[in-house]
Design a binder for these strands. Structure first.
Ligand code: SF4
Ligand code: SF4
Lengths: 152, 152
DNA sequence: AAATATCCGACTTCCCAGGTCCGATTTCAG
DNA sequence: CTGAAATCGGACCTGGGAAGTCGGATATTT
């Protein structure tokens, strides 16, 4: 319930790792997987997905690997989750494929849709950079802080 | 991924329904279930749970049923979800029972924990009353509006 | 040509959300 | 005091999706 997919989790970790190593031209899936203990093959697929949606740039062959396609602060957590897990919906009434049977009679889907928007907003306001730049003692770059509107 | 449980969903619907019928002393699980097309037995268990956590007051026997234990605006969506689905966690590292294997090496659990807090905050700021009082044209009671802080 | 990568689909395993069934108990009405 | 209507509580079944695995094809460097 309301739990993040591990794949998305892994995706975030990997992106953060890449963001922390801007010097290297490319890091292989195995590199990242080893760094954290993530199943390599699984991470591989996650990264492939991220590549296909344009968040990463890949390069096959020796010394190949992945690199961020854009600046770390231009990539939001929302994009990552969306890329890996597909459309973001809190409820089961996606109106896309397998909608909830009682969508017509349901009276809370509109308010919940707004909650959905709010949470999406939270995720959109978080960038990979925000995740990465944290460890560093607590210097000048001040912590990322934002306000999210909630309107029912 | 990041999806609300249907049980919680049902719970919210039921509470809203109860909030909309303050006149009646008690409504049976079947009443509510019929009103929306929810599987009665399932709704029953959800309501039982809500009763056990003190959000509802139950009364067995004929003309029995459930009623809100507190005022509708004193019951948050968060409480409902927590009551039904248990502890609220975005990630799999609950440190309770089945923690994620790579918790030690993971570097994003702290930031994600803050995201978790933020989302919990959003949910806490929503009351059953907010859900219920919506239909009514759009009168004086102005829509519920709030700001949620996000600090990484 | 060999080593190192990404790429991609198919496959298996396991867990749990969603739902059902049934029996026990409480309460009230006639 | 008997039966109907309700809450209780547990055990149980089932489908689908998350998590992970395998194997083969392709691209790139040395
Ligand atoms: S329709 Fe109502 S019940 Fe069905 S999923 Fe959307 S919100 Fe939950
Ligand atoms: S530890 Fe890191 S990876 Fe494991 S669940 Fe918590 S956040 Fe996701």
């Amino acid at each position: 319930m309301l739990k993040l997919t591990k794949k998305a989790d892994y995706g975030l970790m990997a992106l953060k790792y890449l963001a922390e190593h801007p010097e290297t031209p490319a890091l292989s899936a195995k590199d990242v997987a080893d760094a954290y203990g993530i199943p390599p093959q699984l991470l591989a697929k996650v990264l492939q997905r991220l590549t296909k949606t344009g968040l990463l740039r890949s390069h096959a062959g020796m010394n190949g690997g992945y690199a961020l396609a854009r600046d770390a602060r231009e990539i939001s957590a929302f994009e990552v989750i969306h890329a890996i897990d597909g459309p973001f919906f809190i409820t089961s009434c996606t109106k896309g494929t397998k909608s909830c049977e009682l969508t017509p009679s349901c009276t809370i889907k509109e308010p919940l849709a707004r909650v959905n928007e709010t949470i999406a907003g939270v995720l959109k306001s978080i960038s990979i950079h925000d995740l990465a730049e944290r460890e560093h003692p607590a210097g000048k770059s001040g912590e990322h802080q934002g306000l999210v509107e909630l309107t029912l």
